[in-house]
C-alpha cells in the first residue's frame, strides 16, 4: 500500500532531516529544551512518515517488529542499568554517579548562565539517550500494531 513516486521521494529526503533533528534533541537534552521523550517522539514521527509513504509492509521488510521491540527493551534496560550502577558504587539508586567526576559527561559546572558544554550532566545524557531509544521503539510499535488491526495493514 504505497503512495505515488513523488511522495516516496520526498519522504526519503525529509526522513534524513527528521532523524538528524530527533537525535539532536536527544543528545542536547541536558542543554537545550528537549530530552529523551521529545526526541524519541520526533524520530518515531519519521518512521510514521515512512509508513505513510511506503506502507507498513515495506517498512517491516526492512526493519521488522523485532527491531523496534528490541530497541524499546534495550532503552529501558540501559535506563535501569545506569540507575543500578550507582548501587554498586555505594551511592543510592538513581544517584548521579558521573556528575563532576571528570570522566565522560563529568565536567563541573558553576552556577549561572553559560554557553553550554556537551561534556556535562553526568548520567543525564545517558538516560536521555536510553529513554529516546525506548520512546522511538514504543511509539513506532504502537502505530505498527494499530495498523496491523486495520484491513489494509493486515
Amino acid at each position: 500500500m504505497s503512495m505515488s513516486k513523488i511522495v516516496r521521494a520526498a519522504a526519503d529526503i525529509i526522513f534524513v532531516f527528521i532523524l538528524t533533528f530527533g537525535f539532536y534533541i536527544v543528545a542536547h537534552g541536558h542543554l537545550t529544551p528537549g530530552g529523551g521523550f521529545q526526541g524519541g517522539a520526533v524520530i518515531a514521527t519519521g518512521f510514521v512518515l515512512l509508513i505513510a509513504a511506503y506502507g507498513s509492509r515495506a517498512l517491516l521488510d526492512r526493519f521488522g517488529k523485532e527491531w523496534f521491540r528490541s530497541s524499546e527493551a534495550l532503552g529501558l534496560l540501559v535506563f535501569i542499568g545506569t540507575a543500578f550502577v550507582a548501587l554498586f558504587l555505594g551511592a543510592t539508586f538513581f544517584a548521579n554517579w558521573l556528575a563532576n567526576g571528570g570522566l565522560i559527561f563529568g565536567e563541573a559546572v558553576a552556577f549561572g548562565p553559560n554557553p553550554g558544554d556537551l561534556n556535562t550532566g553526568g548520567v543525564i545524557p545517558i538516560m536521555n539517550i536510553a529513554v529516546g531509544i525506548e520512546v522511538l521503539g514504543a511509539l513506532s510499535l504502537i502505530v505498527l500494531y494499530m495498523l496491523s488491526g486495520t484491513e489494509e495493514g493486515a
Binding site: 537534552g29 541536558h30 542543554l31 537545550t32 529544551p33 528537549g34 530530552g35 548521579n96 556528575a99 563532576n100 559527561f105 563529568g106 565536567e107 563541573a108 559546572v109 558553576a110 552556577f111 549561572g112 553559560n114 553550554g116 556535562t120 550532566g121 553526568g122 543525564i124
Partner: peptide, 9 residues
C-alpha cells in the same frame, strides 16, 4: 541543580 548534576536544563 546545575552545580550538583551538571546539566543546564
Amino acid at each position: 541543580g546545575q552545580e550538583q548534576t551538571g546539566g543546564n536544563n
